[in-house]
Simulated assay, not measured.
Amino acid sequence: MIMVTRLNGSRFAVNPDLVARLHASPDTTLVMVDGVSYVVTETLDEVIDEIVAFRARVIAMARRIEESAPAPLTAVRPLPEDER
Rank of each mutant, 00 (worst) to 15 (best):
M1V: 14
M1T: 14
I2P: 08
I2W: 03
M3A: 15
V4P: 14
L7R: 14
N8P: 00
S10A: 10
S10C: 12
R11E: 02
R11G: 03
F12S: 08
F12H: 00
N15P: 00
P16A: 09
V19Q: 05
L22A: 06
H23G: 07
H23F: 12
H23E: 15
A24I: 12
S25M: 15
D27T: 10
D27W: 09
T28N: 11
T29P: 06
L30G: 02
V31M: 07
V31Q: 02
M32R: 02
V33N: 13
V33M: 13
D34A: 09
D34T: 03
G35Y: 01
V36C: 04
S37F: 01
Y38C: 04
V39M: 08
V39Q: 11
V39D: 10
V40P: 08
E42M: 05
E42F: 11
L44P: 05
D45V: 00
E46P: 06
I48M: 02
I48W: 01
D49S: 08
D49C: 05
E50L: 09
I51D: 01
V52M: 10
F54K: 00
R55E: 08
R57D: 15
R57H: 02
V58S: 01
I59P: 05
I59C: 03
M61P: 00
M61I: 07
M61R: 13
A62V: 06
R63Q: 15
R64T: 05
R64C: 03
I65D: 02
E66I: 03
S68F: 03
S68P: 10
P70D: 08
A71R: 13
A71E: 15
A71G: 06
P72S: 03
L73P: 02
L73E: 13
A75P: 04
A75G: 13
V76N: 09
V76G: 00
P78Y: 10
P78M: 13
L79C: 14
E81G: 02
D82L: 12
D82N: 09
E83R: 14
E83P: 15
R84P: 06
